[in-house]
Design a protein around this nucleic acid. Structure first.
Ligand SMILES: [Zn+2]
Ligand SMILES: [Zn+2]
Ligand SMILES: [Zn+2]
Ligand SMILES: [Zn+2]
Lengths: 129, 129
DNA sequence: CTTGACTCTATAGTTACTATAGATTTTATA
DNA sequence: TATAAAATCTATAGTAACTATAGAGTCAAG
């Protein structure tokens, strides 16, 4: 299949597919006589692996490492474990941050009933302190 | 005070201060004879307003709008309200996403005890499906 | 044989910074 | 006072993960 079809099947934009290829996350596809990229089902699986990782917010560099590891089935998977745990730590950290943000935003929102003037707005007052 | 002192007092890096100025979030400071930026306490307050907004993850463009609004104390604050509520929605949305990520990452992590080979690693298997 | 859809590469834009390079100014030391 | 070190200046490039062009080439249908 050509890139447009892979794009539709995968739900990944054409530019993103080409971008992933440039970044070395997808193996270089065959080319047609007219230089069009030609993909197989294997290509689709590669792309879906990347998408799955991205859906977990794993950075492209780490995905690259995961792909390399995937190709060495005999090695220990401890680095895979470590990577996922780091990602989990990061997610937990960000969740904590967001909770704090949420609290402050909610409290701020509650200080204003929206029919004030800006001079009397509790939100602006909070932000100013 | 010069930019270095403002940087220390505010906890904002020198480059970031200059960047905020370029982006129109801080008013242009006075200049010394030798063209060094000279700041007042008012400048510090401006910068702290920006920092407070940034700590709530409000994008620079929205902060710019908030500053403009702040300078029109007689107008209605409904747009301020709207902006904060949008930010709150965004935070809530992101929190939901992160919860889902966390769940999947945790489940994945639980499928591997870290002393597998990659070929037998539950994490890689999950990512592959 | 031309139109339109698709694809190609290369390049620039996005966000909020951070990090240089190379020049100039100021401050501290000898 | 001479000089060295620290601070500042502008301009430019890099970061992450895309997205969006521009301009040219390819391919299928009418
Ligand atoms: Zn999944
Ligand atoms: Zn208000
Ligand atoms: Zn606050
Ligand atoms: Zn494992």
């Amino acid at each position: 299949m050509k890139i447009g079809e892979l794009s539709k099947t995968s739900g990944c934009s054409v530019q993103t597919i080409r971008y992933y290829e440039r970044e070395g996350l997808l193996s270089d596809p065959e080319r047609s006589e007219g230089n069009f990229r030609l993909y197989s089902d294997k290509s689709l699986k590669e792309l879906e692996f990347v998408k799955h990782c991205r859906s977990l917010d794993i950075p492209l560099n780490d995905i690259k490492r995961l792909i390399e590891l995937k190709n060495k089935p005999e090695e220990s998977c401890s680095s895979v474990n470590k990577l996922i745990k780091q990602q989990l730590d990061l997610v937990n950290k960000r969740m904590k941050e967001l909770k704090a943000l949420k609290n402050e935003l909610q409290q701020m929102a509650s200080t204003c009933n929206s029919d004030n003037t800006i001079g009397a707005c509790g939100i602006i007052k909070s932000l100013d302190s």
